[in-house]
Nucleic acid binder design. Structure first.
Lengths: 127, 127
DNA sequence: TCCTATGTACGAGTGCAATCGTACTACCTG
DNA sequence: CAGGTAGTACGATTGCACTCGTACATAGGA
């Protein structure tokens, strides 16, 4: 019997505002697969995206321009799509913008603790 | 503030027996990288290996033949090496055999909760 | 000493993912 | 309606990971 000491953040779940646009296609909670989610999170850029959403969100969801990522737009599209299709994030279309947020409640329900691991992650030192 | 309900297994840490052979090359605890570990665990076969080690170990570590995996030997070598190099497992040479066990304590120290997620994982239904 | 069992090393084939440039679409603003 | 803005679609390239066959190495037993 080992007592797991929980370190810090324990990300809080934001309630969904009313009257949002429909989410883009995504897997349902029951369909989430650990191997797929882990695959989506095994990329440093995507970890950066998810962590920033978890720790620095100023609103419910954020457009891809909010992140300040130094990559071509088409690369960002690729990664945001990968996160959504794995079930890590939910994306909605607001006119021109496509905004993302992390499916914290769904991930906690299926994979408790995983979101917290991403929240405390730090990128590798670039030597 | 959300209280995370911890479901079940909470894998116990086996103490290392004395006088074991030296482990094969592996990353130190401080060197473990979340993205690398998640990448290693994003493969169903490797999840199967780790889960079996966690739940069905009869001894401290197990040779690759103990798992009953229907793959060529060279494929298995590949996956066991991937797990070791990511820091998920530790491998030791016992004469002919190379036995593996999961670095539960190290993983719990760096990524609390992750091992438990693997323990409750179940493979996808094969339709 | 030869045979078998366990597993590695190496190389080839395959496919997918990451990356990015370019062209395009859609919406908002004047 | 013209321009700017946010982002997608598509295609090409590249590299890596998974898969596996074959050859090789080594330990232990008959």
């Amino acid at each position: 019997m080992s007592a797991t000491v929980r370190k810090a953040p324990v990300i809080t779940v934001r309630p969904e505002p009313e009257n949002l646009p429909e989410p883009l296609p995504e897997p349902a909670v029951e369909e989430l697969r650990l191997e797929t989610v882990l695959g989506a999170l095994s990329d440093p850029l995507r970890l950066t995206i998810v962590r920033k959403l978890l720790l620095e969100s100023e609103a419910f969801d954020h457009s891809c321009g909010w992140f300040d990522l130094d990559r071509p737009k088409s690369s960002l599209t690729h990664h945001f799509k990968a996160l959504r299709e794995a079930g890590v994030t939910r994306q909605r279309q607001y006119g021109l913008e496509r905004r993302s947020h992390v499916r914290v409640a769904d991930l906690n329900a299926r994979f408790p603790g995983l979101v917290d691991l991403v929240a405390v992650w730090t990128p590798r030192d670039t030597p």
